[in-house]
């Protein structure tokens, strides 16, 4: 009820100017100094526990091929540098766009002949966090691909589509009212710079899809299933919108 009321109050306020490229800010900038310090310090950032687990998984031979990720890709610090910064990307074999977690799962099926861990499971998040960590500090560089442009347009349509019982689109909060407050929390601009993130509310690492799911249930719409193409489209649009911003994986968010 309180959240609904807050949303209504927000709608009554005059709309702020849309977020321009020059005034983009990561959700990091809106956090308290204590939470920022937690993200800056690798010894205090719990997301690093997942990255550590991902490193062990990277080196472990699995599947019927009994191959580790490292058997093909070698040292992740070199081979995975910048990879997370350009996903989602097209998978040429299927002609479908995949996000980083989807790419890892495809790799596990094709090359390790293994059954990939389900989305949002700890091993899947750990590997994504470890691969993402190798791009930390690098600018987000979406793939230049006409098929991706189509996908980004589809993602933008979803981003601007009103949904749920509260009849709110993503853009109404994260473009029109970013920087204002929804109850006690600052509304971030919604740049997916640090996924998978360690979210204090979750007390665990989670993916962008889990975060999108949280927003969707927040406006009381029915979320898509994990791995749905709609999520990939929204992620592709958001990554295009955040192009040039630094990757923060694994980020900490309240």
């Amino acid at each position: 009820m309180r959240r609904a009321l807050a949303a209504l109050l927000l709608l009554a306020l005059p709309a702020a100017a849309p977020v321009g490229a020059e005034e983009r800010r990561s959700g990091f900038a809106d956090m308290t100094p204590a939470t920022q310090a937690m993200q800056r310090d690798d010894a205090a950032n719990p997301g690093m526990l997942w990255a550590l687990e991902g490193e062990a998984l990277w080196l472990a031979p699995v599947g019927r091929a009994a191959k580790a990720c490292a058997a093909c890709h070698g040292d992740a610090a070199a081979s995975m540098r910048g990879v997370a910064a350009r996903y989602p990307a097209m998978d040429d074999a299927t002609g479908q766009a995949v996000d980083l977690a989807g790419r890892i799962a495809l790799c596990q099926v094709r090359h390790q002949q293994a059954d990939p861990a389900p989305r949002e499971s700890q091993p899947a998040l750990a590997l994504a966090a470890y691969v993402g960590l190798q791009s930390r500090g690098l600018p987000i560089t979406p793939a230049e691909d006409s098929r991706m442009a189509t996908l980004r347009a589809a993602g933008e349509a979803l981003y601007r589509e009103r949904r749920g019982q509260l009849d709110l689109s993503c853009a109404q909060c994260h473009d029109d009212n970013a920087g204002r407050r929804l109850a006690g929390s600052v509304i971030p601009q919604g740049h997916p710079t640090g996924y998978p993130i360690y979210r204090l509310e979750w007390q665990a690492v989670g993916s962008l899809q889990r975060r999108l799911r949280g927003c969707m249930t927040g406006v009381r719409s029915e979320p898509y299933a994990y791995g749905a193409p709609e999520y990939i489209a929204i992620e592709a649009f958001l990554m295009g919108r955040a192009a040039g911003m630094a990757v923060e994986t694994p980020a900490v968010r309240p």
Binding site: D42, A43, M48, L49, W50, L52
Partner: peptide
Amino acid sequence: MARVLLQV
């Protein structure tokens, strides 16, 4: 075994 981060 749980993962541990130690700063010593």
